[in-house]
Design a protein around this nucleic acid. Structure first.
Length: 472
RNA sequence: GCCCGGGUGGCCGAGCGGCUAGGCGGCGGCCUGCAGAGCCGUUUCACAGGGGUUCGAAUCCCCUCCCGGGCUCCA
């Protein structure tokens, strides 16, 4: 049974969807005004793990993500480039989609743009006004936080303390903690007509309106990074529950820890960002995914290149074992030892799964994976042929691990057949050179191939080659 | 200031009342033309500090110190 930490109750709880096996999950998506950084990647990879795990459990998951394409920063950036804001947003949305694909995040079913849900947003605001949870002033429409009792509950704050503010609040609001649902703007700015004049939606309302549109008044999992819990998620919850009267809006509120650099969170305003693209030039997507799996999703993670290197090496050790396994000849008969081994693998696989079921404890799950690879490695050490049942069991483990974590690189495509043939031929020649003790030439071939990104290893069972991600 | 999280062996990082986590690194050995990979052993069982509770605490309670996040831009 899957257990998940719920920020609303501050406890790990048993996860069950509200009805049947359908799971509705929403995660706060990006504001597409610039390239995404590895902090964003951490969040999206964490929810990708969760999504994959849910599907593995047989749940029919619908994973929804919004794209914020209406925003002050977008307008500002677009103005700097002399571009239309929505065009600017489309461009960076494209980059975001490319990043997701590169990172092997394919679990999201639907992306919803804020700009394409203005009607729905307006309808929600109208209903909030009708129910007395909002009020109109000359600058816009505001949510009346005093009218919503549980305001502050999600983030654990008392209403009084919420009146502290860093930015001078709009003077027309009743209370500093009230937030904008609709902001009146001049007609030459990006905006839409509304019953309250031309303008734009407030920051929090798009998520609520999108969720209400696709999921109705309640969803199973609402995710995002911890920095969003207040005010963003608090506001979302208030809007939705005030609108529908259904509580809780989200049965589980899930929050991922932040990525830090030099002890401070990675963010554009601090200027310490490393883009996803930058990392993928030096490490594979698998390396990065493994790196994130090495810490729990709720812990803060310090980013640095050396740690990524550590992750990459640890992953390599795992991959080596499974690769070697596929190279061996297979025997159909099982010995007593083979049967014992299969039992051990099963038990490691079981612990791997239960660790993941326990609030997505990926670091603990990796310990089981390592236990399994060590077991397999010892087994391989002691024999030439491997038993079919062992191979089947190991392959099952491998696809389970890959199914959730996505850390095994794709197999070479069929186009690589030729490359394979050529490499085997070349290594055959090199073997002859080695037998004739012409090591200089043999080494030249090896280092030449290394420069091309093909690593060669000589083993007692003959040469092995592998394509490696470039490092630098 | 207020509200949340944290402080674990050389580094990273699980564990959250009793049961050798794990990874990376270092050292020694096996294997090997070299390199790499792998295996075996080793790096003296570590939990910020101080008080408690308990037969027993890294794990629970109290105090102190330090770090991070939030307090209406944020994944």
């Amino acid at each position: 049974m899957l257990r998940l930490y719920n920020s609303l109750t501050r406890r790990v709880e048993e996860f069950r969807p509200s009805r049947s096996n359908r799971v509705k999950m929403y995660v706060c998506g990006p504001t597409v005004y610039d390239y995404s950084h590895v902090g964003h990647a951490r969040t999206y990879i964490s929810y990708d793990f969760l999504a994959r795990l849910l599907r593995l459990h047989g749940y029919s998951l619908f994973y929804l993500m919004n794209i914020t394409d209406v925003d002050d920063k977008i307008i500002q950036r677009a103005a700097e480039r002399g571009m239309d804001p929505l065009e600017h947003a489309r461009e960076f949305e494209r980059y975001f989609m490319e990043d997701l694909r590169e990172l092997k995040i394919g679990s999201i079913n639907l992306f919803a743009r804020a700009s394409e849900h203005i009607d729905e947003i307006i309808a929600v605001i109208e209903e909030l006004l009708r129910k007395g949870f909002a009020y109109v002033t000359e600058t816009g429409v505001y949510f009346d936080t005093a009218a919503f009792g549980p305001y502050g509950e999600l983030s654990g704050r008392e209403p009084e303390e919420l009146s502290v503010h860093r930015i001078e609040p709009d003077p027309t609001k009743k209370r500093p903690q009230d937030f904008a649902l609709w902001k009146r703007r001049p007609v030459d700015e990006l905006g839409w007509d509304s019953p309250w004049g031309y303008g734009r939606p407030g920051w929090h309302i798009e998520d609520t309106a999108i969720i209400l549109t696709y999921f109705g008044p309640q969803l199973d999992i609402h995710g995002g990074a911890i920095e969003l819990i207040f005010p963003h998620h608090e506001a979302e919850r208030a809007q939705a529950e005030a609108y529908s009267g259904v509580s809780p809006f989200s049965r589980f509120w899930v929050h991922t820890g932040l990525l830090t650099v030099g002890g401070e969170k990675m963010s554009k305003s601090l200027g310490n960002i490393i883009t996803i693209r930058e990392v993928l030039r030096r490490f594979s997507a698998e390396d990065l995914r493994y790196f994130y799996a090495m810490s729990h999703y709720r812990s803060p993670v310090e980013f640095d290149w050396e740690r990524l290197e550590v992750a990459s090496r640890a992953l390599e050790g795992v991959l080596n074992v499974f690769e070697e396994l596929r190279r061996r000849d297979v025997a159909d008969e099982d010995s007593e030892e083979d049967r014992t081994l299969v039992e051990q693998l099963r038990s490691h696989r079981d612990s791997f799964v239960s660790s993941l079921q326990d609030d997505l404890n990926t670091p603990e799950a990796l310990a089981s994976l390592h236990a399994a690879t060590r077991t397999l490695s010892r087994y391989l050490e002691s024999r030439d042929e491997i038993s079919r049942t062992v191979l089947v069991e190991a392959e099952g483990f491998r696809s389970l691990v890959d199914g959730v974590l996505g850390v095994f690189p794709e197999d070479l495509g069929h186009r690589a057949r030729l490359l394979e043939g050529v490499l085997d031929l070349l290594l055959d020649v090199r073997e002859r050179l080695r037998r004739e003790k012409k090591y200089e030439m043999a080494d030249a071939i090896r280092s030449g191939l290394a420069m091309l990104g093909v690593s060669v290893e000589d083993t007692s069972r003959g040469p092995r080659w592998r394509l490696r991600a470039s490092r630098g």
